[in-house]
C-alpha cells in the first residue's frame, strides 16, 4: 500500500487535531460530562497511532498488507459502535432526556427512526457495488453504517428543531462535527462502492479530509468560550432612565 504526501498530511492533520480535542476535553474538565465522546476520541487517537505503526512496519516488510487491512476494519468496527454510542448517549440523551415530557415519546421516536434507518440501510446494502468479495462487502457495510449515522443525526437535528429544544454549545459541536464527517463519508463511500477501485485513492483522501473537518469542528466548539445567554427585546427601563438623565444634564448645560 503506497501513500502520497497528501495522504500523510491528511492522516497527520486529523491525528494532531484529535489529540488537541482530547486535550481540550481534559483541560476543560468535560470528561465527566461527555464520557462516551471522550472514549470515542481517545480510541481514535490510539487507533490512528496503531495503524500508522503497522503501516511503517509494512513499509519495512515486517508486516503484510493483510495485517493492516484487518487491523483497519476491526478497529473501524469498534469506532462505528462507539460512534453510535456518541449519537445515543451524548446527543440523544443529552438533548431529549432532560425533559420529562419527552422521555417516553423521545424514546419511541428514536427507536422508530432507528428501525426505519435499519430497513433503509438493508435496502442500500442490497444494491450491488462495483466490487465483490471481502472489499465489496466491507464497503456495502460501511455505506449502510454511514447512512444510519447520518439519518440518526438528521433525525435528532430535525426533532430538536421542531420541538425548539436548545443545544448546549459543546453538545451542538459534537453533533455538528459528527454529522458533517458522517455525511461526507457517506457520499464518498457511495461513490467508491459504485465506481470501484479506480477512485479508491481519491475517496480515501475525501474521507480523511471529511474526518479532519469534523474533528476541526469539535475542536473549535471545545475551545470556544461559552456563549452568554442573549435576550432580545425592548430597551430596559433602567436604560431609559439613564438616557433621560443624560438628556436632562445636556439640556441644563
Amino acid at each position: 500500500m503506497s501513500l502520497t504526501l497528501t495522504d500523510y498530511l491528511l492522516w497527520g492533520t486529523a491525528e494532531i487535531l484529535l489529540v488537541m480535542a482530547c486535550a481540550a476535553i481534559l483541560r476543560r474538565r468535560l470528561v465527566y460530562q461527555f464520557p462516551v465522546f471522550f472514549v470515542y476520541a481517545a480510541f481514535n487517537v490510539l487507533r490512528t497511532a496503531v495503524l500508522f505503526t503497522i503501516h511503517l512496519l509494512q513499509l519495512q516488510h515486517r508486516m503484510g498488507y493483510a495485517d493492516y487491512f484487518y487491523a483497519y476494519w476491526m478497529t473501524d468496527a469498534v469506532s462505528v459502535v462507539l460512534g453510535f454510542a456518541v449519537i445515543y448517549y451524548e446527543i440523544y440523551c443529552g438533548v431529549f432526556q432532560r425533559y420529562d415530557a419527552l422521555q417516553r415519546l423521545g424514546g419511541i421516536l428514536f427507536a422508530c427512526a432507528g428501525i426505519a434507518l435499519l430497513v433503509l440501510a438493508a435496502w442500500a446494502a442490497s444494491a450491488p457495488g462495483a466490487e465483490t468479495g471481502v472489499v465489496g462487502t466491507v464497503l456495502l457495510l460501511e455505506r449502510s453504517v454511514r447512512l444510519m449515522q447520518c439519518g440518526l443525526v438528521l433525525f435528532l437535528f430535525l426533532a430538536a428543531f421542531y420541538f425548539g429544544l436548545p443545544w448546549q454549545n459543546y453538545r451542538f459541536g459534537i453533533a455538528l462535527g459528527f454529522g458533517v464527517f458522517a455525511s461526507i463519508e457517506l457520499a464518498a463511500v457511495a461513490v467508491r462502492s459504485h465506481m470501484g477501485a479506480s477512485v479508491a485513492a481519491a475517496c480515501s483522501q475525501i474521507n480523511s479530509a471529511a474526518y479532519s473537518s469534523g474533528v476541526m469542528i469539535w475542536l473549535c466548539y471545545l475551545l470556544a468560550p461559552k456563549p452568554a445567554l442573549q435576550y432580545a427585546g425592548v430597551v430596559q427601563h433602567n436604560d431609559l432612565e439613564k438616557w433621560n438623565q443624560a438628556l436632562l444634564e445636556i439640556l441644563e448645560r
Partner: peptide, 10 residues
C-alpha cells in the same frame, strides 16, 4: 440517492 441524502444532511 445516497449522495443526495448526504447533501440534505449537510
Amino acid at each position: 440517492l445516497l449522495i443526495a441524502f448526504a447533501l440534505v444532511v449537510v
